[in-house]
Simulated assay, not measured.
Amino acid sequence: MVKEYLEDKKLMKSIIAKYACDLGRIWEKSHMEDFKLTIINKNNSRSIDFKKLRNDLKSAYDIQRAHQLKGIYMLFKDGDLFIVGNSRENIFKQLKTDFRKDEGFAQLLESNDVRLTVIRMHDMDSIHNARLEAVITDIYTKLFKAKLAEQYELKI
């Protein structure tokens, strides 16, 4: 059954067109902001200044509580994409948890240039949210590969 649908080019074209329209509508309603994360020394180790980040998020998105912020976030280290994440609940809490529990995030704290881009999603449809996250990841992956290819004179 699925094979027949996939082979039906008209049907697939209409599904792809609807998908693009849905993502376009979601993108139109989104709100993107960039933040430079402040790294502080706390208890003889480096950490993100989460108090400042909370205030920055509340101010940029005109919200009363940081937990009202949901959507997609991207972390950059020295200008290069480190991770793309998707939070349907609370981006601020997700970041705090990741920085405290995920050892991979410690790499970010080695840099003095850590940036965060947040795309606030107003229509939180988890399927479209995940698709938009995949599109963003795909775009940055292609940009990163192109940058590497240029740097090392490779053909991709």
Results as ranks from 00 to 15, higher is better:
residue 1 M to I: 07
residue 6 L to N: 08
residue 8 D to L: 01
residue 9 K to G: 05
residue 9 K to W: 00
residue 11 L to Y: 15
residue 13 K to T: 13
residue 13 K to H: 12
residue 15 I to W: 00
residue 15 I to C: 08
residue 16 I to T: 08
residue 17 A to W: 01
residue 17 A to H: 04
residue 19 Y to G: 05
residue 20 A to K: 09
residue 20 A to C: 07
residue 20 A to N: 12
residue 21 C to Q: 15
residue 22 D to P: 05
residue 22 D to M: 11
residue 23 L to E: 00
residue 24 G to M: 08
residue 24 G to E: 06
residue 24 G to T: 05
residue 25 R to Q: 15
residue 30 S to K: 02
residue 34 D to Q: 13
residue 34 D to H: 10
residue 35 F to N: 06
residue 35 F to K: 05
residue 37 L to F: 11
residue 40 I to D: 02
residue 40 I to Q: 12
residue 41 N to F: 10
residue 42 K to E: 14
residue 43 N to Q: 15
residue 44 N to E: 11
residue 44 N to S: 08
residue 44 N to L: 05
residue 45 S to D: 03
residue 48 I to L: 03
residue 48 I to Y: 01
residue 49 D to F: 00
residue 49 D to V: 01
residue 50 F to S: 06
residue 52 K to A: 07
residue 52 K to H: 10
residue 52 K to G: 02
residue 52 K to L: 14
residue 53 L to P: 04
residue 53 L to K: 09
residue 54 R to C: 14
residue 55 N to D: 08
residue 56 D to C: 06
residue 56 D to N: 08
residue 58 K to A: 11
residue 59 S to F: 14
residue 59 S to T: 15
residue 59 S to Y: 15
residue 60 A to V: 04
residue 65 R to T: 06
residue 65 R to I: 07
residue 65 R to C: 04
residue 65 R to W: 07
residue 67 H to D: 14
residue 68 Q to A: 06
residue 69 L to A: 07
residue 71 G to Q: 02
residue 71 G to R: 02
residue 71 G to E: 02
residue 74 M to W: 03
residue 77 K to Q: 00
residue 78 D to I: 01
residue 80 D to Y: 03
residue 82 F to P: 02
residue 86 N to E: 14
residue 86 N to L: 14
residue 87 S to Q: 05
residue 87 S to E: 01
residue 90 N to K: 12
residue 90 N to W: 09
residue 91 I to F: 06
residue 94 Q to S: 05
residue 94 Q to I: 01
residue 95 L to T: 08
residue 95 L to F: 04
residue 95 L to K: 06
residue 97 T to G: 07
residue 97 T to S: 14
residue 97 T to I: 08
residue 98 D to W: 06
residue 101 K to D: 10
residue 101 K to I: 03
residue 102 D to N: 15
residue 103 E to D: 15
residue 106 A to T: 09
residue 107 Q to V: 13
residue 107 Q to N: 13
residue 109 L to N: 00
residue 109 L to C: 02
residue 111 S to E: 00
residue 118 V to C: 08
residue 118 V to L: 05
residue 121 M to A: 04
residue 123 D to I: 13
residue 123 D to V: 14
residue 125 D to T: 04
residue 126 S to Q: 11
residue 126 S to G: 10
residue 128 H to E: 07
residue 128 H to A: 05
residue 129 N to E: 13
residue 130 A to G: 13
residue 130 A to T: 11
residue 132 L to Q: 13
residue 133 E to G: 09
residue 136 I to M: 11
residue 137 T to V: 02
residue 137 T to Q: 12
residue 139 I to H: 09
residue 140 Y to V: 11
residue 141 T to A: 04
residue 141 T to C: 04
residue 144 F to W: 04
residue 144 F to E: 11
residue 147 K to Q: 12
residue 148 L to F: 01
residue 148 L to W: 00
residue 149 A to L: 02
residue 150 E to G: 07
residue 150 E to R: 15
residue 150 E to D: 13
residue 150 E to S: 15
residue 151 Q to N: 04
residue 152 Y to I: 02
residue 154 L to E: 08
residue 155 K to M: 05
